[in-house]
Every structure is written in C-alpha cells, then in structure tokens.
Design a protein around this nucleic acid. Structure first.
Length: 113
RNA sequence: UUUGUAAAUUAAAUAGUCGCGUAUAGCAAAUUCGAAAGAAUGCGUACGAGGAAAGUCCGGGCCCCAUAGAGCAAAGAUGCUUGAUAACGUCAAGCGAGGGUAACCUUAGGGAAAGUGCAACAGAAAAUAACCGCAAAAUUAACGUUAGCGUUAAUUUUGUAAGGAUGAAAAGGCGAGGUAAGAGCUCACCGUAGAAAUAGUAAUAUUUCUAGCCGUGUAAACCCCAUCUGGAGCAACACCGAGACUAGGAGGUUAAGACUGCUCGUCGUCUCCUUAAAUUGGUGGCAAGAGAUAUAUAGCAAUAUAUAUACUAGAUAAAUGACUAUUCACGACAGAACCCGGCUUACAGAUUUACAAAAUAA
RNA sequence: GCCGAUAUGGCGGAAUUGGUAGACGCACUGGAUUCAAAAUCCAGCGGGAAACCAUGUGGGUUCGAGUCCCACUAUCGGUA
C-alpha cells in the first residue's frame, strides 16, 4: 500500500482524539488508534490561525515526507493524527526534529521496532 | 558623482537519489474496489502556482430564477471635459484647485436665488441683521442767559453697517473723496458675477464691456439634475446512481395487537408497485481566451487593425517536498480552486531607461 | 471558495438628523458600620506630573467626527 490514505470526515478525527493514545513531542503531537481497515490512515491538522497558507502547506509536506521514511509492518492498521504544537513557533520547524518526534512516538506505540 | 522623480523587467540557479498531482489510441496486467453510477494498479514519457495566485472592493463572461415587451416609482451607485473599452467606480490626454526649488505628485472636482434642515459654546447678531454706538428731529426736565436761545440728561421717531472683547465663519478687501452721521454713494487697484469677441471638439483660458456686488458655510445632511443598475451566484447549474420518513394503490394473513365480548369490517403488521424526497456517491461544468508576446501601421496616449509565434496547472481535505553536493546577490511578500479586465493591500533585493536639482571637471 | 455581520474602561452595555464621550450595571480600591466577615451606606475607579492622548488601525469630508466616506486589521456567523 504505497499510496497514503487519509482521514477525511470530522467524526473520524473526533474518534481518534477521544479514544486514542497520544504522545507529545517537541514540535508535533501524535494521536494513535487501531482500526479495522487493514492499512494505515493519517490525518494532519494545523490551525489556520497559526500562520498563512504557504507555511501550513510546508508543515504538512514535512510531516508527510518524514512519515514516508518509516517502514511499517505489512499488517499494521491504525489511524494516526498529527497536530502541530502551538507553543512552538512555525519558523523553527525542520525535518530532523519532526523525524525524531515521530520516531519516538512510533516506538512508544510499538508500531515499529 | 550625489540626492531625488517617473516608468519597466526580474522574483536564485545546476546536478543526483527517494517521493507527489494530472494527461497518455506507449508497454504490461485482464484483475481489484463499489449496492450502482463509476473509479483504480506497475513501468515509461510529457507537463505541473503568482506579481500580487491575497483582500473580495468594482465591472463583465457563463449560468439559474423572475419577466410577453417596455416604462414610472422605490432602492442603490457614479458625478470637471474629451476620448479608449465588452464593461467599469478603470485607463489615457487635457482643464481647474492644492503641494514641491524642480523633475513631478495629489485631487468624490455638477447644483446652495427649486425647497427643507443644521451652524453647539461664545457673541449685539449665525441669515428677510439695529442690542450698544454714531447722527438728526420732537417732547420733557435741570442749569445758564444777552429772554432769541444754548448746554446737559431722559424718552420717542427717523437715518446709519464706520466701531463693538466673540467665533471656524460677521455681510467684498484696502485707500482717497464724500456726508448731519454714514454707506460702492463716487473713484483707483485687487477680487466676484454676467455678457460679447478670440483660441479650443469641450472643460476652460485671454481680452473688452457691464453690474457696485441683495443674500455666509454645509449636498462625504436630506435633496435636485444627468447617467447607470432585475435578483442570485460554479457550494450556480446539468446529468447518472442509491434512498429514510410521508402519501396512495394492489395482494396475503391471524403469529402478537387496537376499535370490541364474538363475527364482518377498519387500522396496524408483512410483501410488491407508484409517488415523494431528508440524506448521500459519482460525472460534467473545468481550461484556446473580449487572452499573451513580437513586429508593422494609425494615434500625443489609453487603445485599435493586420501579420507571425507559442500555448495539456486543473485538484476536491486539495499536487512542487526531503536528503546530498556546488555556486552567488545568501533568497522578501506569499499557494491556483469557474474564467477574464481593473482597483487596493503586502514585499528582501537586483537590473534597465528617461528626466530634475546641486556640486565638480572639460 | 462564496455570502454576510460586528468592534466603545477589566467585563457587559448606553450615547436620538455630527456639538462637553464614557450614562447605567457588574467587578475592583479606600473609608464608615462590626469582636470579625457578609449585607448596607459614602467616596473613588482609562493613560499621563501636566499639557494632552484615548471609541480596532490609518487617511479624508467638516469649524468640529464614536456617528458620514474610503482603505486595512481582528473576531463571529451562514452556505454543500
């Protein structure tokens, strides 16, 4: 499953927020919940009050690019939601920090080894 | 050379690896997802954000609703002149006014004797000016007296806008003559209004004459005049598919139930059909255009005409990223969402052209 | 994306054809009352020493703008 499946509806996001586990990294907060579909789905949520559209797009691309670096188990099926930590300013976003955050989060949830 | 003014262009580049979106009568696969409509996979190839894509402030295309067609009213917008344009509240050239030594810049700039409203405080008065003052006449009183009258005061009548502490604004300004006192009452200069002539398509300008100037400001207050506007917006709209509740019809039946104690019947329940449409999936709309660039011609210019050239971004939670290396000016503002013409706002810098002032040199 | 609305002290909320901004209520501060507190009563309450500056920000019209006009900023709502 090379293509990235995304969460779309509002209730799906709410479901993950209310029932899932979470990990707070330096720059990114990760929510995690298992699903029944047989593949991973991700959602990225960034408030429009934080910054303008160009910087929001850049954050989404950074998170998506770092997500693709991981090799997941073939049978893993879960919903993951990424949220930008509001305390950190958007100017300081860089690829390495986001990658480290995701790495720690996925180790905690036990998706990767 | 320095300081400025105006206009235009540009908006980091190159290579490699991994990855993203769209297209594909290339090759492979002939399967997968879905209830259906429909959609999808691998490799290759091609293409893949802006000057403002932004704000959504105007104008149009397109499209639906309303309308036989047109007009008035209402509501709203615009407002010097001429031209450009599909249209505009935009643009160009000019005129008037204001600013700058200058290049140049700014300018919602019609009408206040068509009517209405407002002008707080202060001030005599804020708009058909007489409160004080100034002056003349009459009457009364007091004083003086040459017994005519004179002076002073008060009251009444009349004339008068020279003066009066205010105010944003005070009834054309200033000087001279003139007068009982005054006054465009008269005169010179300046300003204002009107008419004529000349220049100009016109706004307007110049000159001459006339009027003594009897109406202040505000229309971005209501309003009047002229011109323009039917309303909603691609989440419009068209098509394909699924479809709860509701309504109607047909059929079947007593397992449970209501009217009712029983039968029939009705309701209800079950199945099918039709209607209806909450909700919902997909396709189109959707990329070649009143377009862009270059040259020539017309025009001061905006622009128009002709010729030539090139032109697949098209998503639907939304495509341009990451890493490595090199170079430099060390990278600002910022992400298409139906499409065009403008306006407004944000913006690190770099380059070019024209012009002005000052200084220096020849 | 499109369409609309709002903005006044710490908070809510007035200001009537443009004429002294901050009425009124809540909160807060000080005083009185009380052994102490609540309640009640009285006074104060944007910034600044003062001049003055303040109605989201910046311009314009006007003698004079919270109010009229233009441009921006922020916040809120509707729409499949």
């Amino acid at each position: 499953m090379k293509r990235i499946e995304t969460l779309k509806m509002n209730y799906e996001f709410k479901n993950v927020f209310s029932k899932g586990k979470y990990y707070i990294g330096e720059q990114v907060i990760v929510y995690f919940l298992n699903n029944k579909y047989g593949y991973n789905r991700i959602g990225i949520a960034i408030s429009s009050k934080l910054c303008n559209a160009v910087k929001r797009n850049r954050l989404k691309r950074l998170i998506r690019a770092s997500y693709q670096k991981f090799d997941f188990n073939e049978y893993s099926s879960c919903d993951i939601v990424f949220i930008w930590n509001k305390k950190v300013s958007v100017e300081r976003a860089c690829f390495e920090n986001i990658f480290n955050d995701l790495n720690k989060a996925f180790l905690k949830f036990g998706i990767i080894e």
